[in-house]
């Protein structure tokens, strides 16, 4: 039975923050790239494939956020088990474990989106260089991956 334990609530806030903030970042990133890509494709429909890949790139942060949120729910027994009872300290630990991907994801997705928009313009002018445009955008992704890594390590480290 899900009681009103503050430890549990804190952990759930953590899960929500991870999905919410990283998801917002990805939505903004994917959205801005999509706008630029649509403009380019209106001129040259053949560039759909390479611009679509660029648009997909800032979407991963949202997935990373979902992943951390899911892991938290699983660790605290809201999925596939019964809710465990958490101390307030454990609750805070889960909340803070979610923060790296929540904020790292939010900001990196927005900036990756901006980089990818420039990449779309690069593809518009020189379609043969789409690989380079992708690499530029992936450079930003590194920090989302590192944030994800830290969130996961912290989650696995918290004793329940």
């Amino acid at each position: 039975m899900l009681g009103l334990e503050s430890g549990l609530i804190l952990a759930i806030i953590g899960a929500a923050a991870a999905v919410l903030l990283a998801g917002i970042g990805s939505a903004i990133g994917v959205g801005t790239v999509g706008q630029a890509a649509a403009g380019v494709v209106s001129e040259d429909p053949d560039k759909f494939g390479s611009t679509l890949i660029l648009q997909a790139l800032p979407g991963t942060q949202g997935i990373y956020g979902l992943l951390v949120g899911f892991l938290i729910l699983q660790r605290i027994g809201l999925i596939g088990g019964s809710p465990v009872s958490l101390t307030v300290e454990q609750g805070w630990s889960f909340l803070f474990a979610a923060l790296p991907i929540a904020f790292g994801g939010l900001v990196s997705a927005i900036y990756q989106g901006k980089t990818a928009v420039s990449g779309v313009y690069l593809v518009a002018k020189r379609s043969e260089e789409s690989g380079k445009a992708i690499i530029f955008a992936v450079m930003v992704e590194t920090y989302a991956v590192l944030a994800l890594l830290m969130s996961i390590m912290m989650l696995f480290g918290i004793a329940v």
């Binding site: 992943l67 899911f70 890594l149 996961i152």
Partner: peptide
């Protein structure tokens, strides 16, 4: 270290 993170990402999304 991204190799670990990406591998876990695939696994956990599958699980989800």
């Amino acid at each position: 270290s991204r190799l670990l993170a990406l591998g876990l990402a695939t696994g956990v999304v599958s699980l989800t």
